[in-house]
Design a protein around this nucleic acid. Structure first.
Lengths: 203, 203
DNA sequence: GTCTATAAAAGGATAGAC
DNA sequence: GTCTATCCTTTTATAGAC
């Protein structure tokens, strides 16, 4: 990891906010400069182009997803514990960075090729989780099913309500911000409760 | 419903494709014109501005979500049937229009106010579904829980895998397009199977 | 490293002929 | 209604002084 100047960090933080809120196409270099309280020319001095700057932001955002799940899988005594920890840490992450899910989803959707290099270089491997779930099923700790399907379902339950927050807030909670917010916060527990029928108790 | 000229329909169809694939900010009027095999000036002749054209497309896209669910709720004999039908018709819809979910999610996220008028004028009311689910719980046909939570969970399971298709294809199916596609197609059945523990059999 | 000023290009919108 | 040509604003990117 190379050393980053303070200015560089300022720019990256401002760029992170603007890009995640408005997307690559909607973001303006001027706004990034303004939020970083520096000159627009500095953005090019440090990152050459808008696209290069975006690349840095996207990479950092993408990598926010993995440390938590890796930790959860390594430090958990059993599946129950694993699910509880993983769900809880993702809900925390998205409460803190509400734009993260939709940002990644929509940029990957627009330009899927951007993923390739990140997947190769990053130490990310969802297949490990699939293997883990399969093991637990074989051990009789989880109801047997396609482990990929289970993974996708858990991810869906964790991510979608945050990606669709504005929609849910207005359509299901009739615009009541507080109710919606506490509903999302509650998902830390409720997702696990919802999944409980899948878990086979030790006895 | 006013009568639309052929040209107008051509423009709307081209605009639908370009906007849903690239978003409001990423779309180019030139590309819409090209795909409609028509001059750029015509776009302005028929719709005045990019934003007005977008509005038309967005409204039509948003309204694609509701007829199915309304039909499902009215024509189903019981909850089981309702869930099966609703899930199945949404999977069909998203297989056919893969960009629809992420398009709506990201545009609503960017500009939530756009929803207000659509919700008011459109005969949309998710609250009816919440009420229906609550009734079924009271009747002992569904496991008791917060009906809003159930609704959000079902929606999550139906929509997320399509919104995150590129991500899932590359990260969970290692780039195997066909496997991913058939996995998504299978969700017509598998989502319902996954939800089965919630359903209380009649006897 | 940081700034001001400006080039260069893109993209939305309009005028006016047919 | 449809086209070509063009205007005008926005936005990315660079040159060059300090």
């Amino acid at each position: 990891m190379e050393i980053k100047s303070d200015t560089e960090k300022l720019i990256l933080e401002a760029a992170r906010k603007v890009f995640t809120e408005k997307g690559l196409d909607g973001a303006r270099m001027q706004e990034i400069a303004d939020r970083a309280n520096i000159n627009k020319a500095m953005l090019h001095y440090y990152f050459r182009s808008k696209d290069k700057l975006f690349e840095s932001v996207f990479k950092a955002a993408f990598n926010e997803f993995w440390p938590e799940i890796t930790k959860s899988i390594n430090e958990s005594a059993n599946v129950e514990d694993f699910l509880k920890r993983a769900i809880s840490s993702y809900v925390d992450l998205f409460m803190d960075k509400p734009f993260l899910p939709i940002f990644i989803l929509s940029e990957v959707n627009r330009t899927p090729d951007r993923l390739e290099s990140l997947i190769r270089e990053g130490g990310v491997n969802p297949h490990l989780i699939v293997e883990y779930l399969k093991e637990q099923m074989d051990l009789g700790k989880l109801k047997a099913m396609d482990p990929k399907e289970l993974l996708v379902n858990v991810i869906s339950l964790c991510i979608f309500p945050f990606a669709g927050k504005s929609l849910i807030e207005r359509m299901i909670f009739q615009g009541d911000k507080e109710s919606c917010e506490s509903f999302l916060q509650e998902r830390k527990k409720s997702i696990y409760e919802f999944l409980k029928p899948l878990i086979i108790a030790n006895n």
